[in-house]
Amino acid sequence: MKPAPFDYIRCDSLDEAAGLIFETGDEARVIAGGQSLMAMLNMRLARPSVLIDFMNAEETRRVETGKNMLRIGAGVRQAELLARKDLAVLNPLLAKLLPWVGHPQTRARGTIGGSIAHADPSAEIPLALCALDGKVVLRKGRKLRRVGGAEFFLGMMLTDKAEDELIEAVEFPDLPAGSGTGFGEVGRRKGDFAIVACAAVVTKSRVRLAVGGVNDTPVVKDWDALAPEDEAEALNALAWSLDARGDLHATARYRRDLVRGLGAQVLKEARACAG
């Protein structure tokens, strides 16, 4: 199939793109990498009358550090972020999971903001946003609002972004000193969306496990203290609390088993990395 007819506007600034989105609302869609949107256009699951391309706006491609956070513009390519030599220092969890995002070809075009906007419950970048208490920076005209991952993802491919807003950036707070992270996923093939993905963050005061691919949004579980000998029981309780369902890719039982096995694996990795 081919897309329904639409107008294409290439913006030179974020102000211009935000203004157009504010004016056109649900008639417009923003295109960045296009790795998800183009498929939806071709299948006519999305039928915008205007397609707004903001990738020519330099401010969407910035990666900024400072103020105890890593700020990533919505238009930053996944491959560009992964290629940064300092990424493992700036954000070790992103450094671990980005190689699992799609394939080199899709990462070369796909963007950080695009993955967040698409909100696939099996996607790695939304999982990282929830695991790290990150925030989505939404822009409406010249006004900004910040929404945490738990509030931003409302359901499968459903977010809190209003029709007249666009995603300007994503902000990840710096982890406390001595923190450790772990990541693992299982898919049918390398590069496929995960059947189950788990991300762990261990600090001196908290043990956190985030799970993707089971519920309609990433699920985060925190423990104030969790001794290694208590992990199996805690992970079993977590697995049964999730809304695991069977489909063409896996049974509900297999997904729960993966939560237990992957959960233990990534928690062990996070503990080993913690200082």
Rank of each mutant, 00 (worst) to 15 (best):
V266D: 13
M40H: 11
M55Q: 09
M156K: 14
K96A: 10
A274C: 10
V202E: 10
L175Q: 09
S36R: 14
A270N: 06
A197M: 10
L82E: 15
D216A: 12
T251Q: 09
L70V: 00
L248I: 05
R62S: 05
M55W: 04
A237T: 09
L41V: 05
I116S: 00
L262G: 14
A250C: 07
V30K: 03
V50W: 06
D192I: 14
R255H: 05
G187Q: 12
G75A: 01
M156G: 07
P5S: 04
Q35F: 00
R62M: 06
A234E: 15
G114Q: 01
G110A: 01
N68W: 06
V259N: 15
R71N: 13
T106W: 03
L81C: 06
E229S: 12
A57V: 07
R10N: 08
G114P: 03
A250E: 11
L154Y: 01
A88S: 11
R84G: 10
T106P: 04
F22M: 10
A18E: 04
A108N: 15
G261A: 09
L81R: 00
V170Y: 14
S13I: 13
M156A: 15
A117I: 00
N91A: 11
E80P: 03
G191W: 12
H249I: 04
G114K: 01
A177M: 03
L238P: 05
K143Q: 13
R139K: 11
Q265C: 10
L226F: 09
V186K: 14
A28H: 05
R62H: 11
R208Q: 05
P99N: 06
T217S: 07
G33A: 02
E168D: 01
R109T: 04
E16S: 07
R29S: 05
V76G: 04
D224L: 14
A169W: 13
